[in-house]
Deep mutational scan, measured.
Amino acid sequence: DHDVVPEDKFQETLHLKEKEGCPQAFHALLSWLLTQDSTAILDFWRVLFKDYNLERYGRLQPILDSFPKDVDLSQPRKGRKPPAVPKALVPPPRLPTKRKASEEARAAAPAALTPRGTASPGSQLKAKPPKKPESSAEQQRLPLGNGIQTMSASVQRAVAMSSGDVPGARGAVEGILIQQVFESGGSKKCIQVGGEFYTPSKFEDSGSGKNKARSSSGPKPLVRAKGAQGAAPGGGEARLGQQGSVPAPLALPSDPQLHQKNEDECAVCRDGGELICCDGCPRAFHLACLSPPLREIPSGTWRCSSCLQATVQEVQPRAEEPRPQEPPVETPLPPGLRSAGEEVRGPPGEPLAGMDTTLVYKHLPAPPSAAPLPGLDSSALHPLLCVGPEGQQNLAPGARCGVCGDGTDVLRCTHCAAAFHWRCHFPAGTSRPGTGLRCRSCSGDVTPAPVEGVLAPSPARLAPGPAKDDTASHEPALHRDDLESLLSEHTFDGILQWAIQSMARPAAPFPS
């Protein structure tokens, strides 16, 4: 592969990997390779389809078979030569091979799209000592099968071997295949498990690692696999990028399955594409389908809103127990993405979901129960707010008499603000006073009005108090039968009158 990737590009890729991570280095090298001529790309395919690569990765054979028959990708048995050289000459001794072996032994695996480039050397060096003999053996194999790289107009793939297949390693990572398949204008990513390549439709969760975000852009890794992070704060999961590491605690105790298979379609829109997988259930989501939507993949363990709600429900009964003089119970939860139609709101002032922060849900004790107040519409209280300059209440639009249902020339009671006709409430011909108009209920007259088809109010509507207090003497005590009587009149003013009279009014101040 030294004929494909020059030394300066190799060093530039290593520097970019240390600065921005393996995914960015892979993407940059792939983009550079696509700008080369067809001879360089053909050399790339020839390096990929060597015999030892085909033996190690069985899924490469179907890719090789898909090439046109007129494309010669065979390799000479006596060494490598550029395709432009007409004579089959043995190339001179390859010093770059020693360079590659020494550099890969030092860096474990470079971040390139060629056999030198995919593992994360920093994480491997940190986690190597417990498994040094086995990992050293794996390093000797890295130059042979560490990076199976493929690129063409139909298929483009980048393979990364790992030393996680050490025997006896619980939940060992089998390997990473960062794979971009450009077929019919689409893009897919796969993962390699035990020599087999699994596409998103049959993606397997190998051991402790999972394909957290099938994305090839942005600074985030394709698999949430930063070796420096180790395990999740809650004892979460091992990262795919942690090559040759000792077994780590796999999943939280509440995880239903340690080796679950995540779905390959969004649980909201039932469509495929780039998904984020939940650590607590097999569901996966688009970032845009979450509520609120996320802009980037959160670091650490992530769970959907259903799993978060289940966790909150487990903690909430203990938080609601009476604990005198104790601060509110704080339950730190990872930043969760909410699927459509589901929402768990945190306290005000918290950062938005999706940031690399930890939301704190506070379970406050329930407030003391209070008697429910009568629910009145805002339009129902409008007549009470229509007060004239002299303190006389004006008529609201649409006000109707509670007896006849007519809204023409209605009066407004100064005591309960109900609309009424003087002739309907006082049919006996009582003279109307000039000021202080009161309806039949507030004036103490319980004589029913002779209106055909309208039920008369119940005599129990009024329960006047002592006459010594004029204001308190007109406080009506309405009961269920009074409400039914008012409802039978089918008037809004009657219902409003009952609601206003049912509310307690402050006692009249004593004259000074």
Rank of each mutant, 00 (worst) to 15 (best):
P247K: 09
A248E: 01
P249D: 11
L252T: 08
L258V: 10
Q260P: 05
N262A: 08
E265M: 03
C266R: 05
V268Q: 11
G272C: 11
E274W: 05
L275Q: 14
C277N: 06
D279N: 06
C281T: 12
C281S: 11
R283M: 10
E296Q: 00
E296R: 09
I297K: 05
G300Q: 05
W302V: 13
C307D: 15
C307V: 14
C307P: 15
L308G: 11
A310H: 10
A310P: 09
T311K: 12
V312H: 07
R318D: 06
E321K: 06
R323L: 09
P324R: 11
E326Y: 11
E330P: 08
A340P: 12
P347M: 14
P348I: 06
G349W: 14
G349P: 06
M355I: 09
T357R: 10
L359A: 02
P367F: 06
S369K: 08
A371C: 04
D377I: 13
S378Q: 02
S379M: 14
S379I: 08
A380G: 12
A380F: 09
H382S: 07
C386K: 12
V387P: 10
G388T: 04
G388K: 05
E390M: 05
Q393V: 14
N394T: 11
L395G: 09
G398R: 05
A399W: 15
G402V: 08
C404H: 02
G407A: 04
V410L: 05
C416G: 03
A418L: 07
H421V: 02
W422R: 08
R423G: 13
F426W: 04
G429I: 07
G434I: 07
L437M: 06
L437Q: 11
R438E: 07
C439P: 00
R440I: 08
G444H: 14
D445P: 07
T447W: 12
P450Q: 09
G453H: 13
G453P: 10
P457E: 09
S458D: 07
A460V: 11
R461I: 07
A463Y: 11
G465K: 05
K468H: 04
D469L: 09
A472D: 06
A472M: 06
E475Q: 10
E475P: 07
R480F: 12
L486M: 10
T491F: 02
T491A: 05
D493Y: 10
L496H: 00
A507Y: 09
P509H: 06
P509F: 09
S512A: 01
